[in-house]
């Protein structure tokens, strides 16, 4: 289970970086989303995969609840930022009429 999760996190990071480097503004958002999901999973992983939900009834095999609180916070923050970013990129597209990020660069 841990190995599987590690591979999945790695794949998500790779996909995120690849998408961000592809110049299309839609893929830029996708890339950022992948990166943030990968990070959230990594936080989840850092709490230890011990099976039981973090409700302490008896000590030992419960997961650490703190990283899960972190993830919840991070998800909410990411949601806000991505929502803002989508609107911003839409405005950029309206102004520039180009889907290629290099077109943005040239106007500087």
């Amino acid at each position: 289970m841990e190995d599987l999760l590690a591979i999945l996190i790695g794949l998500l990071y790779a996909a995120g970086v690849y998408q961000m480097l592809r110049r299309s503004i839609v893929k830029l958002i996708l890339g950022l989303l992948f990166l943030s999901h990968a990070t959230n999973l990594l936080l989840f992983y850092s709490g230890g995969l011990r099976g039981l939900a973090p409700l302490v009834t008896e000590a030992g095999s419960v997961m650490d609840p703190l990283p899960q609180a972190f993830i919840l916070t991070a998800i909410v923050i990411n949601f806000g930022i991505i929502a803002f970013f989508v609107i911003l990129l839409f405005r950029a597209y309206q102004i520039n009429r180009a889907e290629d990020l290099d077109e943005l660069h040239r106007t500087e």
Binding site: M20, I25, S36, T39, S46, F70, L104, E108
Partner: peptide, 29 residues
């Protein structure tokens, strides 16, 4: 126009910085 274009760069880079920060936090924890 300039503000929007600057905004795209600023948000992208800071978004990446945030994931770096969170990754560091996860690994450190």
């Amino acid at each position: 126009r300039e503000q929007i274009i600057a905004g795209v760069k600023y948000v992208t880079l800071n978004g990446v910085a945030s994931t770096f920060f969170l990754t560091g936090i996860g690994l450190l924890y």
